[in-house]
Structures are given as structure tokens and as C-alpha cells.
């Protein structure tokens, strides 16, 4: 069933940006520019919000394909962070945004941008403790912080991710059985680097069944790039 963004929300801009990011990942060449995708001046607030919603994934084509991040796009991301700062309460939200923003900072660093001191970023958080949860809870939390999944994952959790492979796979299977395609797509991101044999058929399915949801398509496109080893 096609996913229709709710009118009057940031969802249309998120869908627009997610679709453009996916196409940029799949297409050859490096002409992608965030600034060209976002809506015009009158919708700039929604456009910046979309950048914030997608977090580090806004950098996916640059990081995955090894493309240079144009200065204009870096400035746009900084403007988005400033316009939509991370919440300062409640604590759970602060921690969530800490993980998301740490992934964004890592993505920027890979792209040659130092985000130190940027206004609006949350204090850096880590996913390490999430990988110690029981599998159902772990999978639920990893879905919430999918923007911190590979290729934006912390170096320090790579070994932990490998040890948690079965638990994350269980989360993927649970999501697919429950026809929760967005969660399934997020979890393929965490599994993709290991190239485990279940991930490929799961991605095959998600690419077909989730084709109407731009965010599912973006997550599966990122995971596909990581499983096929075409990332730099």
C-alpha cells in the first residue's frame, strides 16, 4: 500500500528527500546536491526539518559513494541543526538525539566537515548499551536509532554488532513476520556489513514490498550498497 504523507506535516519533505537520497545511492555519478532537492524558500522550514528527521542519512550518498560534500550542503545541514535543535528533555529524548547526532557528526567528519561547536547538536551518545539488551528490546531501540547504523556506526561497537548478529536477525525476522516493513528495513542496515545470508533475501523482499515507502526504500538502498561491498 502506498505511503501517503500526512498534509501539513514535515512528512512530504521527508519523503521527497528520502526518495532523492535513494536515487542518488543507486545512480552512477556524483552530481547529487542536497540543496537542489529541498523545497523552495517558502518551505525551507519543512526542508530543514526533513534534513533533521533523516539525520546522518542525509549524508548517505556522500559517505557510501565516497563523494565530496559540497560546502553549500554542509551549510544547509548546519542550518537544519540550528533551526531544529536537539531537545533538552526528557532524558530519553536527549539520549536518543545524542546517538543520532553523534552519527551525524561522524558522517560529517568522514566528509571532511568538523561539526565541533555546532549549535543545536545533542551531547554525543553511544549505541553500545543498546547492544546489551534482550533481543526484542534491542531490535526496537536499533530501529529508533537506525540513523546511527552502518555506514555511520561507531567504530567501537563493530565487534559488539558482530556478537549481536543473531539477536538483530531475530528482530528482523520478527518485523517481517509482523509485516512491519519500516522496522525490518532499519534492521537490515545493522546487519548489512556482515553480509549474512538472510539479509539478501530480506532486502530482495523489502525492495519490492516496500517500494511505495521512500524511507523503507532509502534504508534498503543503503543496506544493499553495504551488502554488495560497493561502498568505499
Amino acid at each position: 500500500m502506498p505511503t501517503t504523507p500526512a498534509p501539513g506535516t514535515v512528512a512530504p519533505a521527508v519523503h521527497l528527500l528520502a526518495g532523492a537520497l535513494r536515487r542518488a545511492l543507486l545512480e552512477e555519478g556524483g552530481g547529487f546536491r542536497l540543496a537542489r532537492v529541498l523545497p523552495g524558500r517558502e518551505d525551507s522550514c519543512a526542508g530543514l526539518a526533513a534534513v533533521r528527521v533523516l539525520g546522518a542519512d542525509a549524508l548517505a550518498p556522500f559517505v557510501v559513494k565516497g563523494l565530496a560534500l559540497p560546502a553549500q550542503d554542509a551549510a544547509l545541514i548546519r542550518a537544519a541543526v540550528r533551526a531544529h535543535p536537539a531537545p533538552q528533555e526528557p532524558e530519553r529524548q536527549v539520549l536518543l538525539w545524542g546517538i543520532r547526532d553523534a552519527a551525524l557528526v561522524r558522517g560529517l567528519a568522514v566528509s571532511g566537515v568538523d561539526a565541533t561547536g555546532w549549535e543545536g547538536l545533542a551531547p554525543a551518545g553511544s549505541t553500545a548499551h543498546l547492544l546489551r539488551l534482550p533481543w526484542v528490546a534491542m531490535a526496537a531501540e536499533l530501529v529508533r536509532v537506525a540513523g546511527a547504523a552502518p555506514p555511520f556506526a561507531e567504530e567501537a561497537v563493530h565487534a559488539q554488532l558482530a556478537r549481536s548478529h543473531l539477536d538483530i536477525s531475530r528482530g528482523l525476522v520478527r518485523a517481517l513476520l509482523r509485516r512491519d516493513l519500516p522496522s525490518a528495513a532499519c534492521l537490515t542496515r545493522w546487519l548489512a556489513p556482515a553480509g549474512e545470508q538472510l539479509t539478501t533475501p530480506a532486502l530482495d523482499y523489502l525492495e519490492i514490498a516496500g517500494a511505495d515507502d521512500p524511507r523503507v526504500s532509502l534504508d534498503t538502498a543503503i543496506a544493499r550498497r553495504l551488502t554488495t561491498g560497493t561502498s568505499p
Binding site: E91, L95, L96, G125, A128, H129, L130, A137, A140, R144
Partner: peptide
């Protein structure tokens, strides 16, 4: 804040 309802909260290492 309990672990059960805030799993996103960091936990200490457990040797």
C-alpha cells in the same frame, strides 16, 4: 528511571 521502560539509557558494564 528504570531499565525496563528506558532501555535507551546507558548501562554499566557487567563483568
Amino acid at each position: 528511571m528504570t531499565r525496563a521502560n528506558t532501555p535507551i539509557s546507558p548501562q554499566g558494564d557487567h563483568d
